[in-house]
Amino acid sequence: MSKIKITKDTFTEDEKLKEIKLYTLENENGIKVAITNYGGIIQKLIVPDSYANKEDIVLGYSNYEQYQKDKNYFGALIGRFANRIAEGRFELEGQHYQVQTNEEVAASKNCLHGGEKGFNSVIWKAEIRKNNNNKFLSLSYLSEDGEEGFPGNLEVNVNYILKNDNTLRIEYSAKTDKTTVLNLTQHSYFNLKGHGEGKITDHNLVINADRFTPVNQFMIPTGEIKDLSDTPFDFRKGAEIGSRIEADNEQLKIGGGYDHNWVLNKEENELSFAAKLIDSFSGRVMEVWTTEPGLQFYSGNVIDTANLSVKENQNYQKRGALCLETQHFPDSPNHEHFPSTVLKAGEEFNSVTELRFATI
């Protein structure tokens, strides 16, 4: 059996930051994924199409210096809490917490993706490990008690595992010494035609969910878990993304398109089918499988790369890519009926997401 190849390269010219590297995993079918230990970012994801043409299907930059200025979270690991916490406030075991707010929406401020310095902008410790004689990339980070206002020393580990069946498996685990809240995800922007190759509104999307969580004008869930039948949010049978994105719908107007959490159809934390993305032009297909209860579909309504040099000098535009973020629900600490994001001392958090690639 062919083994996965891993190479390591520099990713910055700054001599003081020699520990920042770019690791490239390659399988026997020509799939390559390049990951930097700065932010755990997937910098490239090269996948063959139906005609054996290989294209990079994720948005990003060519070096660390550009990622340091990025506001889009291109390809990054997200934590301590993915998505939003209303006004950065929550209560935990009778104690009130105020975490860093870094997003202004209307007249409110939210904690978005972990605050000013989330896991997307820290340097992770990287190790190349082996499992069943195949190499994989393991990243770890200690988020200290009080970082961005969150309680507990949190030890986080993320494994990126590329397989010869064309699966990219992402394994998350975490432990804390004090009760905290945790919500981890991966924030790659996908365009199955190739990064910078037009819009994703012609992609076909399937989401395995009967319900979603509507948001208020501050992009915070109202608490309702709503049936999506007869709405533009029904992707159960598959639909072209652009077919309803401009529909006269209050939720679409609030989000400027799709930027919502779907409640996945699943049993507990089983690894199960969440979504399928199809580009009929290239023939590329990506399935998302996860143990997580939710999926945030973001249709790239705001992609801002002003004054930054993106890969291959491409032109990234509004809706030029999309995110399918496996997660617990936004603002979960403030909604008792949402799946819990509480992690206590002595417990271990474990989660798996798989991206499975194929062609039509």
Rank of each mutant, 00 (worst) to 15 (best):
L184E: 01
D56M: 07
N208W: 03
E267C: 01
A209W: 02
S280A: 14
P330L: 12
N216Q: 10
E87V: 07
A107P: 00
N315D: 11
G255E: 08
I161S: 02
E312D: 12
T24I: 07
I225Q: 11
T231P: 00
T222L: 12
I4Q: 14
I85M: 05
K130V: 15
D49V: 04
W124E: 06
I207V: 09
K266H: 09
R129P: 01
R89N: 14
N102G: 01
N191S: 10
S282Q: 06
V158F: 05
Q314E: 12
D331T: 00
S121K: 01
N208M: 03
Q251V: 12
K163F: 09
I303D: 04
L295R: 01
I170H: 04
K54D: 00
I6N: 05
N313K: 08
F150S: 01
C323R: 10
T291N: 07
E144P: 03
G294R: 04
Y189K: 13
Y73H: 01
F136M: 15
I57V: 12
A106H: 09
K130M: 15
V285P: 08
N72Q: 15
L92I: 09
T326V: 02
S280C: 03
Y189G: 05
F273N: 01
N132V: 00
K253R: 14
F150L: 05
L343G: 06
N265W: 06
Q314S: 04
N249E: 15
T7G: 05
L184M: 11
I85L: 11
V342H: 06
I170M: 11
Y189Q: 11
V156H: 10
N131H: 12
G94C: 03
A321C: 09
L137H: 04
M286R: 07
F81E: 03
I4R: 13
G257T: 05
G79T: 02
E116T: 04
L137W: 02
N307M: 01
E270M: 06
N208A: 06
D56E: 08
R319H: 15
L45T: 09
E287T: 06
Q217V: 09
D56T: 03
I245D: 00
R356S: 15
E347M: 04
F329M: 02
G257S: 14
F357P: 12
K21N: 13
S143C: 11
Q251R: 01
E171R: 03
E155G: 09
V156M: 10
L168V: 11
L192P: 05
